Computed example of a mutant assay.
Amino acid sequence: MRWQGIYVETASVVTGEPQSAAAAVAAGRYSAEEAARSGQRSVAVSRDLSGPELAVAAGRAGLRRGGRAAEDVGLLVHAACWYPGLEFWNVAAYVQQQVLGHGRAVAFELRQMSNGGMSALDLAASRLQAVPGTGAALLTTGDRFAEPAFPRWTTDRGLVFGDAGTAVVVSRDPGGFRLVATSAYSEPELEGLHRGDEPFLLSGSEAGPLDLVARKKGFLRRMPTAEVTVRNETGMMTAVKQCLAEAEADLSGMAAVIVPFFGRELLDRQCLAPLGIPAERTLGDWGLDIGHLGAGDQFAGLARLLDTGRLRPGERVLAVGVGAGFSWTCAVLERV
């Protein structure tokens, strides 16, 4: 979809404190071999704030940064991947109350795994266009991958999970980034990659520590690794090519590409090699300091680009979201 008059006014990120990979290796929580393959130097760890509280902090920071009044926000979408701290609870309503403090906004919670932030951006643009009286949209993400339920260093291979809240403000008022185009694609045949052979339980309290490696092994007994790789690459490239076509642009014209914050080896295999770009064109090196932020990598990347002043007016960035399920959402944005 090509957009007219939709802007990402600002972006913010609030991360936990850095915890070094070397310390995790020394404590026996992370293997030296995996550390060498991933190149992960550290990861963001929140000791006090839950995922929803991190999202609230990022949402407040985003409104302050853009000078946007909470009363102007008519849509809130919150995305996350992991346990929010309580069962049977509306996290979006909590973020709405804590950040906006009024009920004139429509608030949704979105569950699209690590593609949640990008999916929220696509949905927000649609609502802003369809319902002009919406005003501004606040999109937040927030996750705390706390142990022992979530062994952040070992639950998966090729990446380490970091704690953070992120936010973007989207509106029709020029500023920040102009949203040029978005696209989305899904491959539900890969859904089982994060389910494996696990039974459905009556309650989350029955579950032990999350082990994504074991789940993937279960799925790979049904689908060959080579087929998974082809389907994964095809899905991402389909979304990327469609987005670039909608934007009437090509990859070489992007001043930066925001891809998920995976470890070095996984990032190269799943993102850089298919896209045909070097790591230097991405924010992957920063990701080796903070880890994979669940649904928030791309919003954090936009905040980083604003903080560093890396883009000049008129330069464009491609943001690529990848989520278990599997789904991909891409966006081309232009610095205003």
Rank of each mutant, 00 (worst) to 15 (best):
V43E: 03
V240P: 01
T308K: 13
S183K: 05
Q112K: 08
E109V: 13
S38K: 04
P209T: 10
V168E: 02
I277D: 02
D268Q: 11
L138A: 08
G5S: 12
W3G: 01
S186H: 09
R264M: 12
L302T: 06
E198K: 07
V230I: 13
D197T: 12
V259P: 00
F88T: 10
N90D: 14
P209D: 12
V168S: 03
H292W: 05
E206L: 12
T140K: 09
G284K: 02
A256Y: 02
R127D: 09
G67M: 15
L190N: 02
L251D: 01
E189D: 09
G142N: 07
D211K: 04
F88G: 05
A11F: 02
V131L: 14
P260M: 00
A149R: 11
L139Q: 03
L49D: 15
P274K: 05
G296F: 02
L251E: 01
D122W: 12
H194M: 09
Y94A: 09
N115G: 06
R65E: 10
A207F: 07
L190V: 03
L179V: 10
L193T: 07
R47V: 15
L201W: 12
E206Y: 07
V169Q: 07
G175E: 04
N90C: 12
F108E: 08
S20V: 14
P199D: 14
E9P: 00
D211F: 03
D173I: 15
H102M: 10
R310I: 06
T182K: 03
R104V: 07
A239S: 03
G263H: 06
A55H: 05
T329P: 00
L110C: 09
E334T: 00
S119A: 14
V43I: 15
L306P: 01
Q298A: 09
A300Y: 12
T282L: 05
G5V: 06
G325H: 06
V168L: 07
G162R: 12
S46D: 05
T154P: 13
R231L: 15
V14D: 02
G196I: 03
